[in-house]
Design a protein around this nucleic acid. Structure first.
Length: 509
DNA sequence: TTTAGGG
DNA sequence: CCCTAAA
C-alpha cells in the first residue's frame, strides 16, 4: 500500500537516534551477518585439506599418504568439488530446515535385490570419476556421528551465501573420499518405502526452499554437441542442438559448453544406518531428479540479459560469438513465477545459477591460433551472469578464487517505500540507521545495499519512464525520492553537523 | 565499521 | 552488486 504522505521537511523532521550512540567499536553489530562470509569462502583446497586432516585423525593408516596426495591432486588443475556430505546430529537438532526426510523404515526392511546389494561403495560417487578406481579398503571404519535411533542423517549442502564448502554450524563437511569410508563403515538397508517417502515428502521439500542452498556438482568433462547423447543427462551434452535443430548443419561451428559447477538445492536425507548404499544412492538420485524435472526449468542468460526467445538459434542470439561466450550462463528457476516474497525472504530459487565454461569450437579448419599460443580449448570459467549473480570470474587454475558474487535481489516496491520513508526521516548520510530502522530484519540488505539502491532510485527518478527497467516503481515514490534527495543534499551538511553535536552532548551527559 | 563514490 | 579510500 502506498500512503500519500505529506512531508514536513525541516529540523522537526529530523529524527535523532532513540538513544545516544555508543562509540562505534561498542555498537551492536547489527550488520554482522556478513562478517562470516569471508570465512565461508573456504576454497576447495581448504575443504580438502580439512578432509585430509580428518582422515589422519581417524587413524586410517592404510593409505594415508596416498590419500593426502590424491586429495591434493584434486585441487590441482584437475580439481573439482567433491560431494560434500555431512554426518550430523539427529534431525531434532537440525532445526526447522529439514527438507526431504526419509525415515522410519527400519520397521520395513525388505530384502534387497541382489543386484543392488552388490553395489559397490564407490558407486555412490556422483561425479568423482577420477577416483572411481579406488576400492573401499576400510579396515577400520571411521567413527560416524550417528543418531540415537540408529539413523544417519546425511546432508548435502553448500552452506550460505558465497561459500563453497566449509565447516560451519558444527557440521563437518567432508569430501567424497570420506563419504565412501563413511558409507562403507555402516550397513545400510532400505526398502521401497524409501522412495515413496521421498515423493511423499517432495511437497515438504519444496516448502523448505528457503533453506535450500547450492550444492556444487563440479563437472570436468568437455561437452560437445556432437557427442553421443546417450549419457546426456550425466554429461550435459543435451545442452546442445541436435540434428533436428534446423540450424544444425554438418558444417556448423560447434560451441562447446562445459558445466563447471552445477548446483542443486540443498536437501536433507535421513536414512537409517541399516539402509544399503544403493538405497542411499537411489534416494539422492530421486531427490536430484525431482529437482531437475520438477519445479525448475533452465534459463539462459547472455551478457546479463535473459534470452527469452527459445526459438532463436545460438547463432542468432549471439551465443556463438567468441566475444560473448564469456557472458553465457544458465540458471535454474522455478517454473512458475512465485509471488513476490515478503521483504527479507530469500528467493533461493534464483540462486541456482551455474558457473559454466564455454569455449568456441571453430571449424577444424578455422585458425585456432586466436588465443596466441594458448590452446583454443583452454577453459575459461565465467560468471553465471544470471538474473542473479554467479560466481566471480575465475580462472580455473586457482582454487582460491571461488568467491561468488551475491545474488541479485531486486527491491520490491514495498522495500522501496520503506527505504524512501526511512531516508525522508534520516537523510542520505546515515545508512546504518536506515538499515536499522527499515531493514533490520532483512539480513541480505546491507546498508551499502540501501545506499546503492537510493543511488539508483535517484537516477531512476531522473530518467524518463521509458528508460526505466525492472519492476516499475510508482511515480509517487520516485517523486518522494527526488524531493527527499533534494532536501537532504541541501541540508545534509548542516544537519549532520547538528547531529554530531547532539551525539557529542549525549555522550558527555 | 561506516560513509561515500566510482566501477 | 562490488571494491575501497577515508574517516
Amino acid at each position: 500500500m502506498v500512503l500519500q504522505k505529506r512531508l514536513e521537511y525541516g529540523f522537526s523532521g529530523y529524527q535523532l537516534p532513540p538513544t545516544p550512540r555508543a562509540p562505534r567499536t561498542a555498537r551492536k553489530r547489527a550488520l554482522s551477518g556478513k562478517k562470516n562470509e569471508d570465512q565461508n569462502r573456504m576454497c576447495a583446497f581448504d575443504l580438502l585439506a580439512t578432509v585430509a586432516g580428518e582422515l589422519l585423525h581417524e587413524g586410517d593408516k592404510l593409505n594415508q599418504e596416498e590419500t593426502i596426495k590424491k586429495e591434493e591432486n584434486i585441487c590441482d588443475n584437475k580439481s573439482f568439488f567433491l560431494s560434500e556430505i555431512i554426518s550430523k546430529a539427529p534431525v531434532s537438532d537440525s532445526g526447522p530446515a529439514s527438507g526431504i526426510t526419509v525415515s522410519d523404515f527400519s520397521e520395513s526392511v525388505p530384502s534387497i535385490p541382489e543386484s543392488l546389494e552388490n553395489c559397490k561403495i564407490e558407486d555412490i560417487q556422483i561425479n568423482d570419476k577420477e577416483m572411481t578406481n579406488e576400492a573401499p579398503t576400510n579396515g577400520k571404519p571411521p567413527p560416524v556421528n550417528n543418531n540415537l535411533d540408529g539413523n544417519v542423517d546425511v546432508v548435502i549442502r553448500d552452506d550460505d551465501e558465497n561459500s563453497c564448502g566449509c565447516t560451519q554450524n558444527n557440521k563437518t563437511f567432508i569430501g567424497d573420499r570420506r563419504i565412501r569410508r563413511l558409507l562403507a563403515s555402516k550397513q545400510w538397508k532400505v526398502g521401497p518405502k524409501l522412495n515413496e517417502d521421498v515423493y511423499r515428502n517432495k511437497k515438504t521439500f519444496y516448502k523448505h526452499q528457503r533453506s535450500i542452498r547450492d550444492y556444487p556438482f563440479k563437472k570436468r568433462k568437455l561437452y560437445q554437441f556432437d557427442h553421443n547423447p546417450s549419457n546426456s543427462l550425466e554429461d550435459g551434452s543435451s545442452l546442445g542442438p541436435t540434428s533436428q535443430d534446423p540450424a544444425f548443419q554438418p558444417q556448423d561451428s560447434h560451441v562447446k559448453l562445459k558445466i563447471k559447477s552445477f548446483r542443486v538445492p540443498e536437501f536433507f536425507i535421513e536414512i537409517p544406518e541399516t539402509a544399503t548404499v544403493s538405497s542411499l544412492k537411489r534416494t539422492v538420485m530421486e531427490a536430484v531428479t525431482a529437482i531437475f524435472s520438477g519445479e525448475l526449468h533452465v534459463g539462459v542468460m547472455l551478457q546479463g540479459k535473459r534470452i527469452r526467445d527459445d526459438n532463436k538459434t545460438l547463432l542468432q542470439t549471439g551465443i556463438c560469438h567468441d566475444n560473448k561466450l564469456d557472458a553465457l550462463g544458465f540458471t535454474l528457476e522455478p517454473n512458475k513465477l512465485q509471488e513476490d516474497p515478503p521483504p527479507g525472504t530469500p528467493t533461493s530459487f534464483t540462486r541456482y545459477s551455474n558457473e559454466i565454461v564455454t569455449t568456441k569450437n571453430v571449424n577444424e579448419s578455422d585458425h585456432e591460433s586466436n588465443r596466441s599460443g594458448l590452446d583454443s580449448r583452454a577453459l575459461v570459467a565465467v560468471p553465471a551472469t544470471s538474473g542473479g549473480g554467479g560466481a566471480l570470474a575465475v580462472r580455473k587454475s586457482k582454487c582460491a578464487e571461488v568467491a561468488q558474487r551475491r545474488i541479485r535481489r531486486p527491491f520490491s516496491v514495498s522495500e522501496v517505500e520503506a527505504l524512501v520513508e526511512a531516508v525522508e526521516k534520516l537523510g542520505t548520510g546515515r545508512w546504518r540507521d536506515v538499515k536499522l530502522r527499515a531493514f533490520d530484519d532483512a539480513k541480505h540488505r546491507t546498508y551499502v545495499d540501501l545506499k546503492d539502491k537510493w543511488k539508483t532510485l535517484v537516477h531512476t527518478a531522473r530518467i524518463s519512464p521509458q528508460q526505466r527497467r525492472g519492476e516499475p516503481v510508482p511515480q509517487e515514490l520516485l517523486d518522494r525520492v527526488l524531493t527527499a534527495h533534494g532536501y537532504w543534499s541541501h541540508h545534509q551538511a548542516k544537519n549532520q553537523f547538528k547531529h554530531q553535536q547532539q551525539t557529542q552532548i549525549c555522550r558527555l551527559l
